[in-house]
Design a protein around this nucleic acid. Structure first.
Lengths: 193, 193, 193, 193
DNA sequence: AATGAATGAGCGTTCATTCAT
DNA sequence: TATGAATGAACGCTCATTCAT
């Protein structure tokens, strides 16, 4: 058990170190040698846990996507009315990125670098279903204007990324109240008038 | 004069080639040697026109920002009412990115890679003035809800980037009508009810 | 005893696996990790049976040389006349290599790579005695031209290696009859006219 | 011109250095870094002249094959009778390998390492024509026994390689006279009795 | 102004070997 | 006896940058 947890720790340490380094130096600015050094393992050890650098990146991507989903669709929301679910989902995800700047920077770089050498995104499918289902139900139940899901998505997710980005880069410090105001803007834009 | 224009041409060719290559291969996937080859100059020649790779990137950034500003605040709009100015400004910029995917990819990569090796952004100030003045005037004149400029900016620009990104990556083909619908969502969110 | 035979089995499995892998991937293309995997042992286990990779190679070399000797000087031949002994010895060894391509590839790579990293051949002496005694007896008894043993060896062994190599690499499929014809060429060349 | 010859020199130096190092350390024991050091160039410079390590190997192979052909079919032989052509061709090639041990070791390693990592032989066709034509003409004109070309080739080329190998590895010092004796063995074996 | 040969630090990755369990 | 995680030197190769011409 001790061994197992140590093993798990090493794998986890590599992932966490990588994410932190990517936050600081970017995807390309994070060589394996630096990951090894900061995770206190030998470079070769990394290849014991991951096939190559791409595999680390891919795994980080999957982990972060799971976390994002969990933030938006937390169990606490299940009984709430649609508007409340939207507000808490939106602000939760935004807060998640603000609290985990590494995740935001990672996602942005991952998405904006479709041609990074050695990083071929294979499964780029977005788990649209959960999101689109949520908004679709909002339209069906008379909370939202009727429109294509993709039009809503542009505004909703674009605003999350931009807000968190502005916050992280120090352009503006968004308080919780500010996040609610932004969510209100969006809500006013998408709700059935 | 002939010499001067040739010089200007060569400089321009380097910039344009670089942007096109970045569109195809990304910021990191575009070595100087490839720029030289595609721009039909020697690698060393590039260093006559630019101090280093970073200088090319910086200049491209400035160029693209000028173009973005020009799209949003075209002279044609000057006499129009506020709402029309917002709509044409927003859709123009969105269309600009859709028509110039290189610019979008460049901006996204540039912004999401704050620490790329050899690329240290020195002047990261956004020329907030023109944008913020525009929205401020909207609030002062009773068109928009009163709120911090940065809250509006998150939604407005976040939606532009996301929309163009979704379009370029093939996730969804936004028609002109779709762009208007998105602009309407945003307008409904920010306008004074 | 069970333990002993298991031990012997494991050792044998390592050697056999190594030879098969060398046939497929060559001396350099056969890492210890692959040997371990294919022999169903842990990498560390190999170092219980062999001091290092070189020791495996050296042992394989010795094994193959024993097999080669056994093929050439089989007991069946002992009563035969000199010419028959030559023919069956030559064709047997040739057939051995054709039937055991791994042995041929191993011997060729081993002999042609005198300085492979970590492989320093210490005892490169060829057990000339048995071969040279055989040919010497042929000369003494008036079957062969009188000449230095090494001159004969060049032709006899060179032809064996070349024939088996051509066969294995698919350049030409030598039938048993073909092998006899080649042996005849050599015999006609070395016999006392 | 000075520049050109210097450039040519550098390329040539890389090839010659590589061949010499392969003679000493083998194909796998010759890293690019060592070639660079011994050829007095930077490692990166090698990639200015050759696409990769494989390209150096391939070029060396082509060069050596040309030299081998030139040795066997020198113009001096053209008027001679068949037997003399055979003798001078055989001994010339043998002497070539003895005088250029690097070529022999290279050819042996190249041929015996079909799976060396990063070395995929593409054009492995043997220019059989010239050789087979020569021997065919010998059969047609009544100098040689009638038989498949490949049977002759095994003996003729096998003996060359083995003889040169024995000589180079110090197993036996073959004099010119010895080479003639070996050629005589082969001739007696293939000639029409 | 323009070239492109040359550099060498740095990259991702491999692998023989060790050693705590 | 057996394991396999861990090591780190070494590999082939890339690329931003320099400089003699």
């Amino acid at each position: 058990m001790n061994v197992q947890s140590e093993t798990a720790d090493k794998r986890k340490a590599i992932l966490e170190t990588t994410l932190e380094l990517i936050r600081q130096y970017g995807l390309q600015g994070t060589p394996i040698s630096l990951i090894a050094k900061n995770a206190n393992v030998a470079a070769g050890t990394i290849y014991h846990y991951f096939q190559n650098k791409e595999a680390i990146i891919t795994e980080l991507h999957n982990v972060i996507r799971e976390e994002m989903l969990a933030e938006m669709f937390t169990e606490k929301n299940e009984g709430k009315d649609f508007r409340s679910q939207f507000f808490s989902g939106w602000t939760n995800l935004c807060r998640y990125f603000i609290a985990n700047p590494g995740s935001l920077i990672f996602i942005q770089q991952y998405n904006s670098a479709p041609h990074f050498k050695g990083i071929k995104k294979k499964n780029n499918k977005i788990p649209v279903d959960k999101f689109s289902e949520f908004f679709q139900s909002g339209m069906d139940n008379g909370y939202l204007k009727k429109m294509e899901y993709n039009l809503v998505a542009s505004v909703v997710f674009g605003a999350i990324m931009a807000t968190a980005k502005y916050h992280i880069t120090g352009r503006f410090d968004y308080t919780d109240q500010d996040l609610c105001k932004i969510a209100t803007i969006i809500w006013d834009g998408i709700k059935l008038q």
